[in-house]
């Protein structure tokens, strides 16, 4: 019989202690990946530690000019936070493409990140937006840019006993915005064949002051396409600049062929979506 135990600590410190005490423990945020994996027998955690009873980890807080999204915050709550939705519409729309409403009422962006699926929708959007993961653990707290957390499918840079307590996003900046799109065969309830997030900052003259473009499902982990962003900086998004951006996007694509799409298709679609999200983020930035 299963000997798994279930814990619902009230504080981060308690959760840390539980994790330290049981190396085979897993944290439960939304549970939409964890419970599926438990059921399939892929994992058999010795203990499950539910983060949702830790008040500090639920909800979105505006803090030091930025946003802190607690690790147990459901994706649908991001949409309900007007300031966050205005500052990072791309992150919020990405988080609200995961699964269905039922799933998003449970799923969290921290969980989406820590599940370390290459196709996680919220991750490219968070990378583009410059998100940082706040981590608690036996050695104390630390921070890690989101793009450095997933290491390979299903594996993260978290040390034993560590867990993500929150995601921090920068505050709203003038003439800045972001966007995310993914390609799926269905309109909802699907996994990205490819997903692209872009965050754009415009200079006063409408030229591109900064750009971050991140890609999902085109490699073992979501990736920041630095050269693609760089190709836009200083331009006015002329056709030639967009072509260079798209080429740079394709250059970092290292996808595999699988049941959801061929490598060639994924690479081609990454460029198509990158053009689309850059356009949307640029328009949003112009209005921001």
């Amino acid at each position: 019989m299963s000997t798994m135990t279930f814990h619902a600590p009230a504080t981060v410190a308690e959760a840390c202690a539980l994790l330290a005490a049981e190396p085979g423990a897993r944290v439960l945020a939304g549970g939409t990946d964890l419970i599926v994996q438990m059921r399939s027998g892929r994992i058999a955690p010795a203990a499950v530690i539910d983060l949702k009873r830790i008040g500090a980890l639920s909800g979105v807080r505006e803090q030091a000019g930025g946003f802190v999204i607690g690790a147990a915050t459901r994706c649908t709550a991001l949409k309900e936070h007007a300031a966050l939705a205005a500052a990072h519409p791309g992150v919020v729309e990405a988080a609200n493409l995961i699964g269905s409403v039922q799933v998003r009422n449970r799923a969290t962006v921290a969980g989406n990140l820590c599940n370390a699926s290459p196709a996680a929708d919220s991750v490219p959007a968070m990378i583009a937006a410059g998100a940082v993961a706040l981590i608690a653990g036996p050695q104390g707290a630390r921070e890690l840019p989101v793009e450095h957390l997933p290491q390979s499918p299903g594996r993260t840079a978290l040390a034993p006993g560590e867990f993500v307590t929150a995601i921090r996003l920068p505050g709203k900046a003038a003439h800045s915005s972001d966007a995310y799109q993914r390609l799926t065969p269905r309109t909802e309830m699907d996994i990205a064949i490819v997903g692209v997030g872009a965050a754009i900052t415009l200079a006063g003259d409408g030229s591109c002051a900064a750009a971050r473009i991140a890609l999902g499902a085109v490699g073992p982990v979501a990736v920041l396409a630095e050269a693609a962003g760089a190709a836009l900086v200083g331009t006015r998004f002329e056709a030639a600049a967009l072509d260079r951006m798209a080429e740079a996007v394709q250059a970092v694509c290292k996808p595999i062929d699988d049941k959801r799409g061929s490598a060639a298709y994924r690479t081609a679609m990454a460029a198509v979506l990158a053009r689309r999200v850059v356009q949307i983020a640029r328009e949003r930035a112009g209005e921001a």
Binding site: T32, I35, S100, V101, Q102, R106
Partner: peptide
């Protein structure tokens, strides 16, 4: 049993969820 069909939808504290993706102790 994997949150993909919604046939197990219930309300949990006023939000709809797939009850197959909630642990009973929660």
């Amino acid at each position: 049993g994997t949150g993909d069909c919604g046939a197990c939808t219930v309300m949990l504290d006023g939000e709809m969820v797939c009850s197959c993706l909630v642990l009973a102790p929660e």
